[in-house]
């Protein structure tokens, strides 16, 4: 009964990612899309929160590749442990998770 959480806000502008991670349960997945991918960059100040989610809370974190590329973020700059997916991968995540919740 896992859930896919979709976050589209930069963590430097809104508290959306923080709020999402505060509610995601073990086994859930979080997909960063649109401006949210800014938080996926290695060395950013939200890295610790993301690593805690991945390693401490067993949450899988994904980032939408086309949104990273659009913003000039090279895929090798993405934090280790975050999996990059394309739109087809986004669709697959909505299939693999029984529920979807957008954090707008």
């Amino acid at each position: 009964m896992a859930m896919l959480h979709i976050v589209n806000k930069s963590p430097f502008e809104r508290n959306t990612l923080k709020s999402c991670l505060g509610h995601a349960l073990a086994g859930d997945s979080v997909l960063l899309i649109e401006d949210a991918v800014i938080g996926a960059v290695s060395g950013s100040s939200v890295v610790a929160e993301l690593q805690q989610a991945i390693n401490g809370n067993s949450i899988s974190i994904y980032a939408l590749g086309p949104d990273l590329t659009a913003r000039g973020v090279k895929l090798e700059r993405v934090l280790e442990g975050i999996q990059v997916v394309d739109y087809a991968g986004f669709v697959d995540l909505t299939v693999a998770n029984e529920k979807t919740q957008s954090w707008l």
Partner: peptide, 18 residues
């Protein structure tokens, strides 16, 4: 509490976000 909210969210079939 936030923990209870997380559980209630997990029980939903459809979530409309605004």
């Amino acid at each position: 509490s936030r923990a209870e909210m997380a559980q209630i969210m997990a029980e939903q079939d459809v979530t409309f976000s605004f």
